[in-house]
Design a protein around this nucleic acid. Structure first.
Lengths: 197, 197, 197, 197
DNA sequence: TATGAATGAGGATTCATTCAT
DNA sequence: CATGAATGAATCCTCATTCAT
């Protein structure tokens, strides 16, 4: 049963997804409303009908991408009881999945735009804080379970997520020096040194 | 004595510097040839005369910015004999100097463009490798002096520079959670844990 | 008792009124079907359902506005027996009521459109002639009553209504030189010089 | 000798003239930048190069049209010594020259826009005041020469120019009741009644 | 009747680049 | 070397109108 309402929402999500893909591939500045429209299988006018301004559409796209990854994390972590496995899984999901990882390219975009526009910066801080909260929670869980040693979980999360960012940049850019496998090894080693008892 | 040649080079450098500033402030996509021209005190036509294409100008600007920071590093490190002081100084120069640090905004731009364009990616790797080489050399020097303990200086440089990147992103974006002072403290602590004997 | 028919007519009138207000405030060219719809408390689709074309709606709006003022005149004049009072009252109603008087802004619009479109010009002449007829009748009434002296009432009406137009333009545009009060004084003085015996 | 500068000014004037014609013929809202460009024999981009916004171009066009008529008046009046001839000549130039008189259609446009936009209103008042000043000066000249009788030349100018406006509207709209000849006769009669001794 | 999603033609504006001077 | 007028393609956005529900 396809009511008008659900149809509208489906198409809206379609547009957001199309925009996300396009930005990850070509970069915000090079994405045309017509590219998004074409990808979403509708007319330019209609994309504008949903999203009156280009920047608005793009912000939505980035947020949608992150929300999807968050729920992925939630599902994955809920299954794991062992603190180390839980942490490893989180790093696995959060860190870049390889050259041109769309999610990470969106972050590159977000960093740049945040540096230029205060409104976007607010959005960035929110998204960023969310990831750090997730990591902090995982660390706290490990401490509670007696598996991790951490005097300041929030600070450790900050440091660890910085390493995730730094190495993911390399991986996303296809650095010859850092494969995804090596990145994960380094991340896990860092985590063990930081939290291991 | 101002020959035609030196005059030409001066103006060229002027244009490159102007472009760098403009990109750091407004972002590559929002910089117009006329912005650059205005900043450099010349006409659009003349900027085009020096740099036939926009993208070429922009790449030059980023490279010039980095080269300046490298020579800054070279001068500063040459004066210091103590390995820890040398390392601290390097981190001090390399890490972000605060919200909207122009040099770091250019890196944001570079990461993004590298993800989208293979030619730019090559340039990025070169610039990035250069920084890592500098850090590796500093670590090796510390090991030679008996001050640092490092089995794999290149790998430690990779990890440490990742933390620099990750935290500098926060500082450059004016994160309420990471001031420059706190970032430097965290960086030094990380370095000590990593290399301290 | 609200039959389907009366309900339809009510809503149609609502749309026409909304259109009139909108045009007076923003000008025909800047009025969107959606503006009218919003004002009338219905959807764009529904406004289009009543008025298949935009121009048609707008013409209707102007005519409706004038018809309302005519009946206002009719009611007011019927009560007055004294020729001078009747003339003064007519001038009072017909002349602009101040800066941005909606009725007069619609006339500005009508003059412009009439100059560009022969169909509209026909409508304008009709509306304009109607006003002049009303004025001519008032003058004739004054002559019959022995109060006015006029060899050619139609010509006097033409002249007097020209002054009304000319001064009302100033008042509607908020000219610092002509307040509504001063305009009325000038109008009455002109009338007395023209028709006074 | 065609320098770059004079060439630039010529083309700018060309654009302004083209815009004026186009607006008078089709109305501001229906004039496209491309219409103006085509008329002026250049590209749309170039018209925008001279006039960054449409409204700006249009204001310039109206002002240019009036300035031309003012200098026409100046030349014509300078030749005439007789006060009545001078006044008649002014009315002759100022009043509408027939159906669709381009200058008057521009005034229709100006009245409308002034009612909707305060910035335009300021411009209108300035243009309008200029005409009234010219008329006032002509009346004062007549009084000085002992030919006219006027207690308040400014007020008489206001009234007379109102009649000019009111009748010119009729003539410009091709009213079957007012030919240009009849308008001029009425205007001169009004002037004589108002100022005649 | 009433809705509002969808269309698609079109318009203003921007801007890198060229080129005559 | 230097200018800046001129180009014209490209792009975002608007909006009257249609039509399935």
């Amino acid at each position: 049963m396809t009511t008008r309402r659900t149809k509208g929402m489906e198409r809206e999500a379609l547009v957001v997804a199309a925009a996300g893909e396009a930005i990850a591939e070509r970069g915000l500045a090079n994405v045309r409303m017509s590219d998004v429209a074409e990808r979403a299988g509708m007319t330019v006018g209609h994309v504008s009908y949903y999203f009156p301004s280009k920047i608005e559409l793009l912000m939505r796209a980035i947020r949608a991408s992150e929300e999807q990854r968050w729920s992925e994390v939630e599902v994955a972590l809920a299954r794991l009881r062992d603190p180390w496995k839980r942490l490893d899984k989180l790093l696995d999901i959060a860190a870049s999945h390889g050259a041109r990882d769309p999610g990470w390219v969106l972050w590159f975009q977000l960093w740049l735009e945040s540096a230029l526009d205060a409104d976007v910066a607010r959005d960035h801080h929110e998204l960023d804080a969310r990831w750090r909260t997730i990591l902090t929670d995982v660390i706290r869980y490990g401490v509670e379970q007696g598996a991790f040693e951490s005097v300041d979980p929030a600070q450790d999360a900050m440091l660890l997520s910085s390493v995730v960012d730094g190495l993911s940049i390399q991986v996303t850019l296809g650095s010859p020096d850092v494969s995804r496998a090596r990145m994960l090894k380094l991340l896990k080693a860092s985590a063990r040194q930081m939290l291991g008892s």
